[in-house]
Design a protein around this nucleic acid. Structure first.
Length: 258
DNA sequence: ATGGTCGTTGCACGA
């Protein structure tokens, strides 16, 4: 079973690239972020023609998350399932695919440490942890994947000195991510690759992709039963090349068995 | 020299 995540930065602008990539890589499950579509505008038929069921939680213009699956898509829950008023922004969707409870997340960017949006980011991360802990056990097969807008470690940053005082690396947001991992999840790519310079996002400007200036902020977190099945993981940086790419590359994880 | 692009929308702003 091949599971992938990709922040597509507008599915309307990217649907051709996504179709091409699906045909090439053949994931069983693809979690997408930043579809920037209303549910009405989501191209479900396009994905159905490629053999995928889909679930989308969108708001139009901004945000928007989706899950595509060839291996079943059950018990779909849009937004948080914690009994509190729903988050105003469309940033997570959860479904069960072949026995794995999978959440596609688009964590708030934060903008800057002194911005209201950064407080929203931290509160959102705490709520995500609560959502996961209250709806699943670390002994279950659980994946939380997407654009976390957090670089877990300085290895995941092209130049840590340029990120001092910035979002994506602050101790508070890294602590939130660590707390989710402490609950029982592992950053799967790091089970297979220890080295630095593995990035999943590069700014469109200044030739950052070509110059190797990126961040690893798109993560696949999984509980131990999923990690035990994992056989391979890679960031597909080829998908960042060519005409009209997203500014993010997909991250792929392969699992043994169904 | 501290820029640079893309997406949304609409002539600015978010990432």
């Amino acid at each position: 079973m091949r599971v992938a995540t990709w922040n597509v930065n507008s599915l309307k602008a990217r649907v051709g690239r996504v179709e091409e990539w699906l045909a090439d890589v053949q994931p069983d499950v693809l979690c997408m972020q930043e579809t920037k579509l209303s549910d009405d505008a989501f191209p479900a038929l396009t994905f159905q023609a490629l053999g995928y069921e889909s679930a989308h939680h969108g708001q139009g213009q901004w945000n928007g998350v989706a899950i595509l699956s060839k291996v079943g898509l059950a018990d779909v829950v849009a937004n948080f399932a914690d009994g509190r008023p729903p988050d105003a922004e469309a940033r997570l969707i959860t479904a069960t695919c072949a026995g794995v409870r999978i959440t596609s997340v688009y964590v708030p960017n934060g903008r800057s440490l002194d911005h209201e949006h950064y407080r929203y980011k931290l509160a959102w991360l705490a709520r995500l942890r609560n959502h996961v802990a209250n709806n699943s056990s670390p002994l279950d097969q659980v994946i939380v994947t997407g654009d976390f807008n957090i670089a877990p470690d300085d290895r995941d940053v092209y130049d840590p000195s340029k990120m001092i005082g910035a979002t994506h690396v602050s101790p508070a947001e890294r602590a939130e991510l660590a707390a989710l991992c402490d609950w029982g999840m592992t950053d799967v790519l790091r089970r297979f690759h220890d080295q630095d310079k593995l990035y999943s996002w590069w700014d469109y400007r200044a030739g950052d992709f070509h110059m190797g200036r990126g961040l690893r902020i798109d993560l696949v977190l999984a509980t131990a039963p999923v990690v035990a099945r994992s056989t391979f993981s890679i960031i597909d940086r080829n998908a960042r090349k060519g005409t009209s790419p997203s500014d993010h590359a997909p991250v792929i994880v392969d699992l043994a068995g169904a």
